[in-house]
């Protein structure tokens, strides 16, 4: 693994939906190392712990990374208050990103809520060969659909309350695609654990490779402090592995749901 740590200029900040912010950060060395699915670990004044935020897009040519995050607690509120043109203390890129197949393979990208942002980096790679299924509680927190469309990725939008797109969960269109629409080489998913569990089950049923990105309360971010444990079955045994170093991406068949 290779990381960098430093202070990087915040180029732009936008409130893109209710309680959701995007930030573009100038970090050429970090952008050169990063792959989709990795995250950055951000230090904020007055907080003992850094905040892990997934990388949404990597623009290596311009040395810029984009992050998108939801306001969850004081840490993310303080992050959202950082003024444009000041700097952010960032460690990254952290963790293992998604395993990428060769371009041109057909894949499904599934994001639930604030699990959608890392799917954009995959859409940047697979482009028109990707189908992006996004699920939100309601239309007020719908994000990033334009980004998928500009890449030529097909978008399927779901909301829990029917205020936009399909009234229902992301698992319905997933099952329809896998059962009727021919072959997909991989499903990538990020979002709440109950959603990932159901997706994992559906992919198992159709024998489709599924990579999930998991979340856990995190400390050091590099695998030293052992706090961000997830139960993973590997080599016939269950282990508490760590989201920061062993993940955040795991093969869904290994996760002990």
């Amino acid at each position: 693994m290779r990381y960098v740590q430093g202070k990087y200029p915040l180029l732009a900040k936008n409130n893109i939906a209710r309680g959701i912010y995007e930030m573009n950060i100038l970090a050429p060395d970090l952008a050169a190392l990063a792959v989709p699915g990795q995250f950055v670990h951000i230090a904020l004044a007055g907080h003992s712990l850094r905040r892990p935020i997934s990388i949404c897009r990597i623009d290596e040519a311009h040395g810029v990374i984009k992050i998108v995050f939801a306001l969850k607690g004081q840490g993310t509120r303080d992050l959202a208050d950082v003024p444009v043109n000041s700097t952010l203390d960032i460690m990254g890129p952290m963790g293992n990103g998604f395993t990428l197949l060769e371009p041109g393979r057909k894949v499904i990208l599934i994001g639930g809520g604030i699990g959608v942002p890392p799917m954009v980096g995959l859409s940047d790679y697979y482009r028109e060969y990707a189908t992006a299924i996004s699920g939100f509680r309601d239309a007020s927190i719908k994000i990033l659909q334009d980004e998928f469309e500009k890449n030529g990725s097909r978008t399927i939008l779901c909301t829990d309350d029917g205020s936009a797109g399909i009234h229902g969960f992301v698992t319905q269109p997933l099952e329809e695609l896998l059962s009727s629409d021919g072959h997909y080489d991989c499903v990538y998913a990020c979002g709440p654990m109950p959603m990932l569990k159901v997706i994992s089950g559906i992919c198992g049923k159709y024998d489709t490779l599924c990579q999930v990105s998991l979340e856990q309360h995190m400390g050091c971010g590099i695998g030293a402090c052992l706090v961000c444990a997830v139960n993973i079955r590997r080599d016939g045994e269950e282990h508490f592995l760590h989201v920061c170093k062993d993940g955040p991406v795991f093969d869904s068949r290994e996760v002990v749901w």
Partner: peptide, 20 residues
């Protein structure tokens, strides 16, 4: 030893709680 199940760290005022 596999350590404790569930969440193992949380930030609190001026520090953190952990349970590894």
């Amino acid at each position: 030893r596999d350590g404790n199940p569930g969440k193992r760290i949380v930030e609190v005022p001026s520090g953190l709680l952990f349970s590894v």
